[in-house]
Simulated assay, not measured.
Amino acid sequence: MGFFIETFFGGLMAGMLYSLIALGFVLIFKASGVFNFAQGAMVLFAALAMARFSEWLPRWLGFESVILANLMAFVAAGAVMFTIAWLVERLVLRHLVNQEGATLLMATLGIAYFLDGFGQTVFGSDIYKIDVGLPKDPIIAFQSTFDGGILISKEDVIAAMVAAGLVALLTLFFQKTGTGRALRAVADDHQAAQSIGIPLNRMWVIVWCVAGVVALVAGVIWGSKLGVQFSLATVALRALPVVILGGLTSVPGAIIGGLIIGVGEKLSEVYLGPLVGGGIEIWFAYMLALMVLLVRPQGLFGEKIIDRV
């Protein structure tokens, strides 16, 4: 029983990390109605900015405090992501207002390739590390209850708490603030939103800025765990089934979908993997997402789209 709980808990923590990236997909889709293929590149770019600024700023400014370096690097990386959001709206989205969704989708692909190349040009292509003080050593809990106890990663627990806090804030933002409701209106109908005075360009800048901050948090956590390298952009592919399962329009759905997939991956690999030779963890999420698409295309928590003719 202890091993099952340990595996289950490990799946929950992995699912929360997937959900951090899935949040970026959901935010962009809620505000623009387009699936943002650049989210993985944004996570990578933000992580690169954080890693390199934490190295450069102490040398430039002449101080040795690691905490201050990380704090200033986070602020600087956030400013970079805000700048990118403004440039994306100014140079790309502004010229594609009221275009077909496929056109916007292709635009995000172009943004993704640009960020990949530009990030390599500015920050380099080596493997960098991010050390924000997250504890690496696991702890063994419930030793008196279960034989051998349960191994828990403190780093994963902190990451899960950060993700949960972001979800709570974003849910309140979309449900309780005027800007959040305006973003939902823009996602429903660009032309109708403009007709009632909602500034479409400003709404897109805001949501890309928020998605950039989410990408930065995800990049810092993933970079701390795996190191910052260009394969980090492919981590976003692990979040695609999360988005499909939870629903493209649901912020809480991104979290719940991530938890379901994280737990499902771990349990299936541990208990079913030996029966089929392993490898279930690689394709489990995609098969689950496919089954959900066949039954409920909008996802478990997505808004059902009704077209009236």
Rank of each mutant, 00 (worst) to 15 (best):
G279L: 08
D131Y: 01
G15R: 06
D147P: 13
A69D: 05
A218R: 04
G302A: 15
L17N: 12
S231K: 11
I139S: 07
A168H: 10
A14M: 13
L183D: 08
A49E: 11
F53A: 03
L240P: 01
Q229P: 01
L109R: 02
L200R: 07
V26M: 07
L275R: 09
Y113Q: 14
A164N: 00
L240V: 14
A73F: 06
E100T: 07
E64H: 08
S195F: 01
F35E: 11
F284V: 14
A185Q: 01
F142E: 05
W208R: 06
K154A: 09
L166Y: 01
L17A: 02
L288W: 02
L93H: 06
V157F: 06
I280G: 05
F8Y: 01
G11V: 01
G133D: 09
L226T: 03
F74C: 08
Q99T: 15
R94T: 13
L200P: 08
L259P: 02
A254D: 05
G299M: 05
A73E: 05
L248M: 15
L172W: 00
C209G: 13
A112E: 09
G257C: 12
I28W: 10
V205K: 09
A215C: 11
R181M: 14
G117R: 06
E64M: 07
T83A: 15
G101V: 13
A73Y: 06
R90V: 10
A289V: 11
G133V: 00
L151Q: 11
I196V: 15
F123M: 05
L245T: 13
L57A: 08
L170P: 02
L91Q: 08
G253T: 02
G278N: 13
Q298S: 15
G148A: 09
L272C: 10
G279M: 06
G101K: 01
A107I: 12
I206L: 10
P138I: 05
A49G: 14
A85V: 10
E100M: 06
V220D: 01
L216R: 04
V217D: 01
L290D: 13
L134Y: 04
Y18T: 04
G124Y: 10
G197S: 11
L169N: 04
L216F: 00
L71S: 05
K266V: 14
S144R: 11
V97F: 10
L200A: 03
Y113M: 15
V92M: 10
V43S: 10
R184P: 07
Q143D: 12
L91V: 11
V235I: 14
E6N: 09
G62P: 00
R296P: 12
F25A: 02
F174C: 09
V34E: 05
L93I: 11
S153G: 09
D116M: 15
W283Y: 13
E281L: 11
E281V: 12
V34L: 07
L248C: 09
I244G: 09
W204H: 07
L87P: 03
M42W: 04
L259D: 03
V207P: 07
Q143W: 09
G180P: 04
V220G: 05
F301H: 08
A141R: 00
Q175H: 12
F4K: 11
I130T: 04
L91T: 09
L259W: 00
L115E: 05
G302H: 07
Q143A: 14
L57R: 06
V220P: 00
L68P: 03
F9L: 15
A46K: 04
R202F: 03
G2R: 08
G277T: 10
